[in-house]
Design a binder for these strands. Structure first.
Lengths: 342, 342
DNA sequence: TTGAAAGCGCTAACAT
DNA sequence: ATGTTAGCGCTTTCAA
């Protein structure tokens, strides 16, 4: 009895099987040059002792973990939770695990923490940038494979997969206009949001109005956060202030759901009195009553692209010429908007 | 120019600042015995070189990472996504990060993978057990702090925080009976589910019927998976088969949402024709139209307990006498059920 | 086919 | 207040 700790190391296995640690390592990693009988002995010892590899040690030495990090603003937002699920499926097919962590969205310090520190635990990182400006982006010096998601094109050395925020928002707004809405609330929007998701979707809202030759009313632009209650509160406040409207473009489906609840409380009918379009086409959307018209940002295409780009970096090392990909968005018409009349 | 790699190590910082690596380590970890001027030099060097600690190395040496793992069956299920958010908040207050990974629920091999291997990357693990039987549970030999979530009491050496699945389900069903439903669908249930969540909630359903002296009808027990469409499909199939019912107890809110959509398609009114109660009280529930009556499994109490138990293990080492905690559940009455008539 | 030696980057324990 | 030594558990390299 020399060891008191119950942690079993490779050396323990080696001793028990009467071989060197190298041979154990070779067996575990499926390397070829190991005798059949030796392999058996080693496997038996592993099973008997309940040995588990220490990933930290492997990572330290070999520089890989088989783990890909996914950093998102909030874990509970359906869009990101569903994205995580889709990515997990795809990476699993490549023998890689996804682990998810949150950045906290706004606080840029959070984000740095992920990129500058945690990255070292992963073979690669998928980073959903929310409120990161180009200056910070270029500061990130790292050799590790990184794929960025979201927002507008930014000068950076990272592969970057984007949804088409502007065009998606334009389609949503255009649809509301085409089906008869004239006073459309921009819910959650921030016209000064610049290259953030908020700013881009607000831009699409303006574009659609310009295309249709219809003025926008600043009173109808309501900023909010992105939880259910934020959408609810925003619409409530609009109603309390007696500001009239006949359509809502919600910047996310979650906010749209909150908005619809507020409309119901006010006895306003959807879509008869007020039409609503969301953005994200989360799984919830098609099961709501009425089901939610939304913008599908190209879920599967995005997940495919993200996975493919990261896998490529994992193989070939960091990219020299970062790829910048914009996945097309499309409207999914459901019951919170009226059919076209024309 | 000796190094070609761009990875900056502590040794690089030490050289640049003209100190030993130990001093750099002391500065980084905020240990006291460092001169003010030396600290400045070191911090300057860190900033200049863009140094980041290598967590794998720290973990290997110090045995801690500042990271707590959370393993859940599916990343996209709102209950787990929202749980992850709550836990992240709490652990953040203790200077710890949460990272989330999925086990895949059913495949026990997935689960083992987490427990036996990934665990080594974390200071502790929170494991949501879904389909794990006691035998496997006792096999897990590990010194690392582990807190289990969910399901029924199981003999194990781990701290275990449970929601009261049986009583929650009993309350849900009792409420349906008390408000006039007599033929209540058990949606997603599996009476043979044993100690799984499914089996426990089915048990509560039976209990409530027994309490009320009302027979259950096996035709009304419909198994399903836990996605929106599973709830939808299950109700559709019941309607197609002309099996009459006037209430639905859905094993999760997600399934309930799918069910309500199917009822709407069949022109059945909720709650007038069919009452619906879900389980989980996810954020979505109160914003739906009609808002969803559900069982709140004690979200905050659970998160508090989980955090507290893990933190304690982190401090004191693995528990000798594992704690087993059952958090009470309570009904949240909303619009998918009728008010009490008595 | 197998093993010995070296060292990945860091920190605990012990000098100085 | 700072430095030296040793070694965490693994894998790479090279030798047997």
């Amino acid at each position: 009895m020399k060891k008191t700790s119950t942690v079993v190391t490779m050396a323990d296995v080696a001793r028990s099987a009467g071989v060197s640690t190298m041979t154990v390592s070779n067996v575990i990693n499926g390397r070829p040059r190991v005798g059949a009988e030796t392999r058996e002995r080693v496997l038996a010892a592993i099973a008997e002792l309940g040995y588990q590899v220490n990933l930290a040690a492997r990572h330290l030495r070999a520089g890989r973990t088989g783990v890909v990090g996914l950093a998102v603003p909030e874990l509970e937002r359906p869009y990101f939770a569903q994205l995580a699920g889709r990515l997990a499926d795809r990476f699993e097919a490549h023998g890689l695990r996804i682990v998810v962590e949150r950045t906290g969205a706004s606080r840029q310090g959070e984000l740095d923490a992920v990129v500058f520190s945690r990255l070292r635990m992963y073979d690669g990182l998928i980073l959903s940038v929310v409120d990161l400006d180009p200056a910070e982006l270029t500061q990130m010096r790292t050799d590790a494979p990184v794929v960025m998601i979201g927002e507008r094109a930014l000068p950076s050395k990272f592969d970057h997969v984007m949804m088409d925020n502007i065009d998606g928002a334009r389609q949503a707004t255009a649809h509301l206009l085409a089906t008869g809405s004239r006073r459309i609330v921009l819910l959650g929007g921030d016209p000064d949001g610049g290259a953030s998701m908020t700013g881009l979707r607000a831009e699409g809202y303006s574009l659609a109005h310009a295309d249709a030759g219809i003025e926008t009313d600043p009173d109808l632009v309501v900023r909010s956060s992105f939880r259910f209650e934020d959408g609810y509160d925003a619409i409530r406040s609009l109603l309390d202030r007696k500001i009239g409207f006949d359509g809502v473009f919600a910047l996310t489906d979650v906010v749209a759901i909150g908005a619809i609840r507020a409309l119901a409380d006010a006895k306003l009918r959807v879509p008869d009195d007020v039409q609503v379009v969301g953005f994200d086409d989360v799984d919830e959307a098609r099961f709501l009553v009425p089901s939610l018209t939304s913008i599908n940002p190209g879920h599967d295409e995005m997940a495919d692209a993200i996975c493919e780009l990261l896998i490529r970096q994992l193989k070939d090392g960091p990219t020299d010429e970062p790829e910048e990909l914009v996945v097309p968005a499309h409207l999914v018409e459901r019951q919170t908007t009226r059919p076209h009349t024309n």
